Simulated scan of single mutants.
Amino acid sequence: MLIDRPIWKLNSLVRFFLLRIQYRNRISANGLSLLSWTASFRVSRSGNVCLGSKVIIQPFAEIQCDGKIRIGNRCDINRYSRLVAMQEISIGDNVAIAQFVSILDHDHQFSLDDNGILSVSRKYECGPIRIGNNVWIGDKVTITKDVNIGDNVIIGANSVVTRDIPSNCVAAGVPCKPVFHAKTATQA
Rank of each mutant, 00 (worst) to 15 (best):
G138H: 05
S159Q: 07
K140F: 02
A98G: 09
D107C: 12
F100T: 08
Q109H: 14
D146E: 09
A172Y: 04
L118K: 11
D107L: 12
R130P: 00
V170A: 11
V170D: 06
C169W: 05
F100Y: 15
S121I: 08
S159M: 07
N134Y: 04
H181R: 15
T162K: 06
H106I: 06
V161L: 12
P175L: 08
H108V: 09
G116K: 08
I149C: 10
V179L: 10
H108G: 09
D151R: 04
T142K: 12
S119N: 14
K145A: 01
V174N: 13
G116V: 11
K145C: 00
G127N: 00
D139N: 13
I165T: 02
A98H: 07
L118M: 14
I137P: 00
I131D: 06
N168C: 03
A171C: 13
R163L: 03
A171R: 10
C126N: 08
A182E: 14
I154M: 05
A185P: 04
I143Q: 01
P166S: 11
G116Q: 13
N168L: 02
D151Q: 05
V170G: 10
H106P: 05
A172L: 11
F100S: 13
K183C: 13
L104P: 01
A171K: 04
N152A: 03
N168T: 02
A185Q: 15
I143M: 02
S159H: 02
N152R: 02
H106L: 06
V141C: 03
A157E: 12
K177T: 10
S167W: 04
I149M: 11
H108W: 07
R130F: 05
I117R: 15
T186G: 11
V147Q: 08
I154H: 01
D105K: 04
